[in-house]
Design a protein around this nucleic acid. Structure first.
Lengths: 340, 340
DNA sequence: CTGAAAGCGCTTACAG
DNA sequence: CTGAAAGCGCTTACAG
């Protein structure tokens, strides 16, 4: 029952290291943080003292004294959706290499929770912040603007960022896919997603689709939005429902590949011919999308790259440099495969 | 080019709030941190001052003064693998609700980087730590033991944890799946994974398999381990290679569902009959596993639950209570479907 | 190149 | 219930 642990010892501080090495704390601080400002011999003596005492730098004290930490808060609406995780992974890659730590906030698509997360994180005196999306409470925007430090909004490319912005135009993505479907000869196209009210980026893709349909004088339908979160099974169900209730529909543009791949897997099982009976398109570019039969036509969104660029931009600004562009419109790629 | 920002103002501190409310800083601190110790009227006055000044508590200063923060470091070997992300999501869920923040470290399966992450994180005076896996450098184990605060090792259930442990027995999981395959009549079974040397949990599943094969006097093969990271396409390639080079093999136990689903999708495309020509089994329980044709036999690992329990155990201990069990062996579930 | 002083913004522990 | 003092462990800014 009793934890198998050595009792906690008194914390070893800079001062202890200094005494052990026979110098002042200030010198130790310098040797640790700017090794080049100190002679080799001294640095070696101090490193030895650090090892001997098992000294661990107190980052909290450092952050307070220098009025800033190297922790970058990253706020996402969900961790269940791979898309956000991949952005976080991209950020991590760059940030960790540059010596920054990531603090993770999850809002569950709740803008009030987003506000709480932002204001809490501000209390850690971070040098900057990365936040998913461009739709926030006015309070949140104002707080961040008044804060005055670098902020990157990711995911979508949009107008009037708080500060910097790295993402793609979901409107254009919707247009691109729809143009492809129209060229292929599909005339009765429907958009299917989950919780499109909250997933406003999906709504933007729908709007892009609607614009193209209107321009071609084709039938414009309201999007179909299910109330549960996106999951592959729901994609299959949606396919069957549409076939049953709206038999004239000849193509489905799904809000994401989870749904679209789910629809293809169901079609396989039910013996429904895709794209002959009905075409299926997705969005994101999941690994499985190219492996199902028929392979899924989709749009590759560069999540990892968005994360990396966001982190790079932020770190540029933290380091006092000015990135070439405040707003970065990352490109997407239409992958035409067998399902359309 | 010039950022659209309000210039940064002087930081609003506790003292400012105190002056504004006409009380001492100490009283404001109490009103904020232990609202119940202060009269309603006073609390209202202080809340008003906080709002008026836009005060944000400086958590760094608080952490230094009280020699502890509410930041919990979470260290994982990868963010590209859903399994770890789901554990992080489970931890988040519990931790964020309880008022803790997560700091995220990614080791990329590198034990040296793990040590660096651990020792850096210690500098944030966290109240505890969650780390994936039970295989660490001796230095890392010692550092954590000497630190003396609560630590949870997750993913696998194993002997001699640093402190607490929540996970499942991968050895038993390997045994369970192999027993199933043997019962079904498969006799020439091979284990296929990627980077099994680094993914020692996969190696444990292999050992469980080997044990069962030995007990039944069946052919025991070395595992096949590819050098690239796990991805669905590799699963398909592996299937084709085995069919070609080891035609007698009648069942493949893949190290994870990504590989196994990839194999099934390839079999579909190539017209290979599963399980008739060769059976396929996986591990993890991905959403797509039940949707492919044939549906994949796999083992459901409760990643989310592991994360939640790990966070609960940690927070129990942080709060000074003693969890009922220091080691939690979460159960897994064999899902027999069509592919075996 | 090295050090003594002051201070970062809180909370702990002690008084009243 | 409220406050004055001391201190958390560093770094900044200034001397030497």
């Amino acid at each position: 029952m009793s934890p198998a642990k050595v009792p906690a010892e008194r914390t070893v501080t800079l001062k202890d290291v200094a005494e052990h090495a026979g110098v002042s704390p200030m010198t130790v601080s310098r040797a640790l943080n700017k090794p080049e400002t100190v002679s080799d011999a001294l640095r070696a003596r101090i490193d030895a003292a650090v090892d001997a005492l098992g000294y661990v730098q107190n980052l909290v004290a450092g952050a307070l004294a220098s009025a800033g930490s190297n922790v970058i808060p990253v706020i996402v609406p969900s961790l269940s959706n791979t898309v956000f995780v991949e952005i976080v992974a991209g950020i991590q890659e760059v940030a960790q290499t540059a010596g920054f730590q990531l603090m993770l906030g999850n809002t569950e698509y709740d803008l009030e929770r987003e506000y709480t997360a932002v204001s809490t994180f501000l209390g850690w005196s971070p040098p900057g912040m990365i936040i998913a999306g461009m739709r926030h409470l006015d309070r949140t925007r104002n707080l961040l603007k008044r804060w005055g430090k670098p902020v990157v909004e990711t995911m979508e490319f949009g107008a009037q960022p708080i500060d910097m912005n790295v993402g793609l135009s979901h409107f254009k993505a919707g247009e691109a896919m729809t143009r492809h479907l129209v060229e292929r000869g599909y005339r009765q196209i429907v958009f299917v997603g989950c919780r499109i009210d909250a997933d406003y980026r999906a709504a933007q893709r729908y709007k892009g689709m609607d614009r193209v349909l209107a321009r071609h004088g084709l039938a414009r339908r309201d999007p179909i939005s299910y109330t549960e979160p996106s999951n592959p099974e729901r994609g299959g169900d949606a396919l069957m429902e549409i076939l049953d209730i709206k038999p004239k529909v000849d193509a489905i543009f799904f809000a994401n590949d989870d749904l679209a791949v789910g629809a293809i897997l169901r079609a396989q099982r039910e013996g429904i011919a895709i794209p002959k009976r009905i075409a299926v398109a997705g969005f994101n570019g999941l690994p499985f999308a190219s492996l199902v039969t028929p392979a899924l036509t989709t749009i590759m969104s560069p999540r990892h790259e968005i994360g990396r660029i966001a982190a790079q931009q932020l770190i540029e600004r933290i380091s006092g440099r000015t990135p070439a562009r405040r707003r970065v419109d990352v490109s997407f790629e239409l992958q035409v495969r067998e399902s359309t």
